[in-house]
Simulated scan of single mutants.
Amino acid sequence: MDHQAVLALYDRDMREGARPDGPGDRVERVGAVVRQVSDAGGWNGVLWSDLNEATADRAIAGQVEFFAAHGQEFEWKVYGHDLPSDLGDRLTAAGFRPEPQETLMIGEVARLSLDAELPDGVRVVPATDRAGIELVVDVHEKAFGTDGSRLRHQLLTRLAHQPDSMVALVALAGDEPVSAARVELVPGARFAGLWGGGTVDQWRGRGVYRALVAHRARVAAAHGCRYLQVDALPTSRPILERLGFHALTTTTPYLSPE
C-alpha cells in the first residue's frame, strides 16, 4: 500500500468531502474548515481543516463562537499530519480537552485476512430493530464504561431513515450479548468505516473482535468498498495489523471548552 497516496485519498473523500452522518445532520465548509452540525442527539465537530500558523487561531475562535451560539458542544478531530503542526497545542490553549489518541488504520479489502472464526457457541446476528440496537448499546456500555444514550439515538435514527448506510452486528453467546460493532457505508465511497467494536471483559482475547472485523470486511466488500478505515485503540491495533491493516497516522479528538 502506498501510505501517502491512500492517506491523501482518505482526506479528500472522507474528511474534506465528508457527507452527513444522518438525516438530521449537515456538513458545511466555512473557509478552510469542514464541520458537521447535528441535531440534539448527533455528533458535532470539525472533520477537516487546511490551516497554517497565521490562520489557525482565528479559525479555532470562529468555530468556538459558532457552536456556542447554537448551544452545542463539539469535537475537533486532529490528525497527526494536520497543519499547523502545533494545532493540538493551539486547541488546548483555547480551552479544548484532548481525548486519548487513536491510530487511523486502513486496510485494502482484497488483501485482508478474513478467515477468522467465532469461538464455539458464539453467533453473529444483525441488529435490524430496536431490540437489536439495545443489545448493541448494552455491549457498548459494558465494554467502554460509558453512557450509550447518544449512540442509541444515532443508531435508531439511522435504522429508521438510512438503513442502507449501516450494518450493526451483535455477537451472542447463547442469548448473552458479548460483543458488538458496526460498519458504516457511504454510497459510492471507496472507504467503509468500522466503528464501535467492543467486547465485554470476560470474552476478550477469544477472537470475537477479530471475527467481527472479518465479518464487516465481507459486508464492505459486498458493497463494492475498496478500503476499510478504523480509528483504533491500542488494544485493537495488533489485531488489525495481523488482519492486514496499515497504520497511516494518528487521530485525537479535542473536546470544546465547557
Results as ranks from 00 to 15, higher is better:
residue 178 V to Q: 01
residue 178 V to G: 01
residue 179 S to E: 10
residue 179 S to N: 09
residue 179 S to Y: 07
residue 179 S to F: 06
residue 179 S to A: 15
residue 180 A to C: 05
residue 181 A to M: 14
residue 181 A to S: 14
residue 183 V to L: 13
residue 183 V to K: 14
residue 184 E to W: 09
residue 184 E to T: 12
residue 184 E to P: 00
residue 184 E to C: 11
residue 185 L to N: 04
residue 186 V to G: 02
residue 186 V to E: 15
residue 186 V to P: 00
residue 186 V to W: 14
residue 187 P to R: 05
residue 187 P to Q: 05
residue 187 P to S: 05
residue 187 P to A: 04
residue 187 P to C: 02
residue 188 G to S: 09
residue 188 G to N: 09
residue 189 A to C: 12
residue 189 A to H: 09
residue 191 F to S: 02
residue 191 F to K: 06
residue 193 G to R: 12
residue 194 L to M: 15
residue 194 L to E: 08
residue 194 L to K: 07
residue 195 W to Y: 15
residue 195 W to M: 11
residue 196 G to Y: 02
residue 197 G to L: 12
residue 197 G to C: 10
residue 197 G to D: 07
residue 197 G to F: 11
residue 197 G to S: 12
residue 198 G to T: 03
residue 198 G to P: 08
residue 201 D to F: 07
residue 201 D to R: 13
residue 202 Q to R: 15
residue 203 W to A: 03
residue 204 R to S: 06
residue 204 R to Q: 04
residue 205 G to T: 08
residue 205 G to F: 01
residue 205 G to E: 07
residue 207 G to E: 14
residue 207 G to T: 07
residue 208 V to I: 15
residue 208 V to D: 10
residue 209 Y to K: 01
residue 210 R to V: 13
residue 210 R to F: 03
residue 211 A to V: 06
residue 213 V to E: 13
residue 213 V to M: 10
residue 214 A to R: 06
residue 214 A to G: 06
residue 214 A to Q: 01
residue 214 A to E: 06
residue 214 A to K: 02
residue 215 H to I: 04
residue 215 H to Y: 11
residue 216 R to I: 01
residue 216 R to F: 03
residue 216 R to A: 00
residue 216 R to L: 04
residue 217 A to E: 01
residue 217 A to K: 05
residue 218 R to A: 10
residue 218 R to C: 04
residue 219 V to E: 13
residue 219 V to K: 09
residue 220 A to I: 03
residue 220 A to W: 07
residue 220 A to C: 04
residue 221 A to S: 07
residue 221 A to Y: 00
residue 221 A to L: 13
residue 222 A to D: 09
residue 223 H to E: 15
residue 224 G to H: 03
residue 224 G to N: 03
residue 225 C to L: 07
residue 225 C to V: 12
residue 225 C to P: 05
residue 225 C to A: 15
residue 227 Y to H: 08
residue 227 Y to K: 02
residue 227 Y to V: 02
residue 228 L to N: 08
residue 230 V to F: 01
residue 230 V to A: 12
residue 230 V to W: 08
residue 230 V to L: 10
residue 231 D to Y: 14
residue 232 A to S: 11
residue 232 A to N: 00
residue 232 A to V: 06
residue 232 A to P: 10
residue 232 A to Y: 09
residue 233 L to M: 00
residue 233 L to T: 15
residue 233 L to V: 14
residue 234 P to S: 06
residue 235 T to R: 12
residue 235 T to H: 02
residue 235 T to W: 11
residue 236 S to K: 03
residue 236 S to H: 04
residue 236 S to T: 05
residue 236 S to D: 01
residue 237 R to A: 13
residue 238 P to M: 10
residue 239 I to L: 13
residue 239 I to A: 11
residue 239 I to F: 00
residue 239 I to D: 00
residue 240 L to S: 00
residue 240 L to P: 08
residue 241 E to R: 01
residue 241 E to A: 12
residue 242 R to Y: 12
residue 242 R to C: 04
residue 242 R to P: 06
residue 243 L to P: 00
residue 243 L to T: 12
residue 243 L to S: 08
